[in-house]
Nucleic acid binder design. Structure first.
Length: 494
RNA sequence: GGCGGCAUGGCCAAGUGGUAAGGCAGAGGAUUGCAAAUCCUUUACCCCCAGUUCGAAUCUGGGUGCCGCCUCCA
């Protein structure tokens, strides 16, 4: 079965066929680096990372480009607020972005161009549009003329003739006055006094938002790419405008497939900076939610549907991940390379797999090929994991034959397959947080361990009342005790 | 107002014509000094109405409810 994806252009499921056999070019709209990334970004980039991994796993060579928007009003405002510069704000947030993505096990893009590094290409493109009559300049600004571009609105289903021209009062009226049509958008904005600016044939200023993507796609990947990615909130106007600019300039179709991910909601509303209902990726991860838990949470839903962020759902994902992680950890063994498994050609030879495992692999591939049905794919992972979890627990209790996790050929093969398929979803064994990692607050480690020793002594004398009191007291202070086989007691902060 | 999407058990969520995956929670069991953890087993007729069909959660028409975009936004 071949990969089918929902193409926003047709709003239909289409069989994916790259332009050049065996290789796929992808452009993903990146972030405006004025602040830290939140869970909406996490969802988007986790999903696209999975698309990329699935393509690689399926045997394609993938070239993946993602931009940084580092010229923007919000960055300027932020810089002004903190008395620093646009470059400083951008640099800081780019570093944070890279770190956050790495924590989520999102593969770095092959190229990550910045708007500030693409000015020559941007100006060239604007010049081309102006020369072709698709754009006009007005008072130092340059605008794209939507009425002169046949097909404007094809992505978002907007009809210029029928559109309510309700932009009045929402957009700076002076800018509105310069436009020939309300939907015309700025390719170049002339600098206002005191603003940082870049030189251009139209005078000092800075590029509009949409043009950078058109310029970067062309510079990095060519006139027509296979897949263009972004959040559903970018369909209009951003992607619509991108299409108009690029296609007016090149005469070629910009992207053959457009994929859009659904929003992360909080209490039924979209998570966004303006609503103030966002949680940053690092705040969540630093609060003790593991990166793989977040990944599982995201992948349990289909990428196109809205995903409601609730603590209940997140806790469910955490518990689910715990089980999966136990199986993955056992399968990976002590081999460090295993933990760092990267997607590649199929690691297992399907022909050599036991029938049950071959069927599981097939179900996984079919699910992923069906518009990235990660929810169904995860079900396969959970089923593969079950016997491994059971063994992991038996080993922990010490009642499995032999101390060595010699899995036996069948379980070994199952473990290998589980690791292979999990890697397609970017899921990898994750070290369980150690008490040391939660060293802040409450009783210190030495005190806790002293109490554990007291309790052990009490239990040895069958003084369970004292033992239970110690356990209850510690729980009051947020310390949970877990008795393990062999009289050993572990603890963790709740 | 225009465009688009969604509605499946207590919660999350697959399934697009043949009698409902998976996860969480719950229940029962095993285990445990008791707990926790772990393992096993177990729980639905799919928003409403009317159609099409031998047969629909799945197709058609009409409702109802919710969300996104139309302004920066993943």
């Amino acid at each position: 079965m071949s990969l089918r994806l929902t193409n926003s252009l047709s709003r239909r499921l289409e069989v994916f066929q790259p332009l050049a056999p065996g290789q796929v070019s992808i452009y993903c709209c990146g972030v405006t680096v004025y602040d830290l990334c939140h869970l909406g970004h996490a969802r988007s980039y986790i999903n696209w990372d999975v698309l990329r991994r699935h393509l690689i796993w399926s045997g394609y060579r993938v070239r993946f480009v993602q931009n940084y928007t580092d010229i923007d009003d919000k960055i300027l405002r932020r810089a002004a607020e903190e008395g620093s510069s646009m470059a400083a704000v951008s640099e800081r947030n780019i570093e944070a972005f890279v770190a956050d993505m790495a924590r989520l096990n999102i593969l770095p893009a092959d190229r990550m161009p910045r708007a500030t590094g693409s000015l020559a290409a941007i100006c060239a493109l604007i010049g081309e549009l102006e020369a072709k009559g698709a754009a006009y300049s007005a008072d130092g600004d340059v605008y794209f003329a939507v009425m002169r571009h046949a097909g404007y609105g094809k992505l978002s289903g907007r009809d210029l003739g029928e559109q309510q021209q309700n932009a009045a009062g929402r957009v700076a009226s002076e800018e509105e006055a310069r436009k020939q049509h309300p939907f015309d958008f700025a390719l170049w904005k002339g600098a206002k006094p005191g603003e940082p600016s870049f030189d251009s044939p139209w005078g000092p200023g800075r590029p509009g938002w949409h043009i950078e993507c058109s310029a970067m796609v062309r510079a990095e990947l060519g006139d027509t790419i296979d897949i263009h990615l972004g959040g559903a909130d970018l369909i209009f106007p951003h992607h619509e405008n991108e299409i108009a600019q690029s296609e007016a300039a090149t005469g070629q179709e910009l992207a053959r497939f457009w994929l859009h991910n659904g929003m992360v909601n909080v209490g039924g509303e979209k998570m966004s900076k303006s609503l103030g209902n966002f949680t940053t990726i690092r705040a969540l991860l630093d609060s003790g939610v593991s990166a793989m838990t977040l990944r599982l949470f995201v992948l349990q839903a289909h990428y196109r549907k809205p995903l409601d962020f609730t603590t209940e759902a997140l806790e469910a994902a955490a518990t689910g991940w715990k089980g999966l992680n136990a199986a993955l950890t056992l399968a990976a063994g002590s081999d460090g390379e295993r933990a760092a498994i990267t997607p590649a050609q199929p690691a297992s030879d399907p022909a050599a797999l036991a029938p049950e495992l071959a069927a599981a692999r097939e179900r996984f591939a079919t699910a992923m090929d069906d518009d990235l049905n990660t929810s169904a794919a995860l079900a396969v992972l959970f089923e593969l994991a079950r016997p491994l979890r059971a063994l992991a627990n038996r080993l922990e209790r010490g009642d499995a034959a032999g101390g060595d996790p010699a899995l036996g050929p069948a379980l070994h093969q199952r473990g290998e397959l589980l690791l292979e398929l999990a890697a397609v979803l970017g899921l990898r064994p994750e070290a369980v947080s150690t008490p040391a990692a939660f060293a802040a607050g409450g009783p210190d480690q030495a005190a806790i361990e002293a109490l554990i020793e007291q309790r052990r002594a009490a239990k040895a004398c069958r003084d369970f009342a004292s033992a239970d009191r110690i356990r209850a007291d510690l729980l009051q202070q947020g310390i949970e005790l877990i008795d393990r086989p062999g009289g050993h007691t572990e603890w963790l902060r709740r």
